[in-house]
Design a protein around this nucleic acid. Structure first.
Length: 194
DNA sequence: AGGAAGATCTACT
DNA sequence: GTAGATCTTCCTA
């Protein structure tokens, strides 16, 4: 079981593509001597200022907004309704955007409670279980030395069906469906499965 | 000091 | 599927 972080080129594409490609990839958290590994099963894509749901549309300078335009592969962590949400910066060269990681399937290092209570489905709960907070904002997620990373799956080329829906909790959404999830996976967050 | 925020839980039609 | 209460921190004034 070798951990190979995703490379920068992976994130140098449209957030929509990256959101789909992230499904099935691994989210790895080093917590002291413990190692927590989960498989990403649900994501959402956010674009630049043309996207009314993106923080980029709020204008800048503003917390987090600069990061949307910055180096890809970095974490973007902010608080919404008392929950920390984990995003990764992804966009084409000179673009802006990010992918929100909404849910994962616990694979390694998680307690039975986490698995039974589905504590990794939903962006807020996921951050709580992984102890992700503002400290991670701006940190690279593709540096093997860091405590939080995005890695390739252990067995590549696994097949699964990707489904799409509108983004959750967004007041002004785009016409395009930008929430993606693995069909049939029980750790996809319950609300609006289709 | 007040309000907003990409959430979550519960309880309805 | 929608609606409300409550959630916790950050932004703006």
């Amino acid at each position: 079981m070798k951990l190979t972080p995703l490379n920068k080129e992976f994130f140098l594409r449209s957030p929509e593509i990256v959101a789909k490609q992230l499904l099935g990839k691994l989210l790895v958290r080093k917590l002291g001597s413990k190692l927590l590994i989960g498989k990403i099963v649900e994501t959402e894509a956010y674009f630049g200022r043309e996207d009314p749901a993106s923080r980029a549309s709020l204008g800048w300078p503003r917390y987090c907004v600069e990061l949307l335009y910055g180096e890809v592969g970095r974490a973007l962590v902010y608080m919404v309704h008392g929950n920390w949400l984990l995003n990764v910066v992804a966009h084409e060269t000179n673009g802006a955007g990010a992918v929100l990681i909404r849910a994962m399937e616990p694979l390694v290092g998680f307690s039975d409670e986490v698995r039974e209570m589905k504590l990794t489905s939903g962006p807020g709960r996921l951050s709580k279980v992984l102890h992700i907070d503002k400290r991670f904002n701006g940190m690279s997620l593709i540096n093997l030395k860091n405590e939080l990373l995005l890695c390739h799956e252990f067995q590549r080329n696994q097949r699964f069906k990707i489904r799409a829906s509108h983004r959750i909790g967004v007041s002004k959404d785009l016409k395009k469906k930008l929430r993606f999830f693995i069909d049939g996976n029980e750790f996809v967050s319950n609300i609006r499965r289709y």
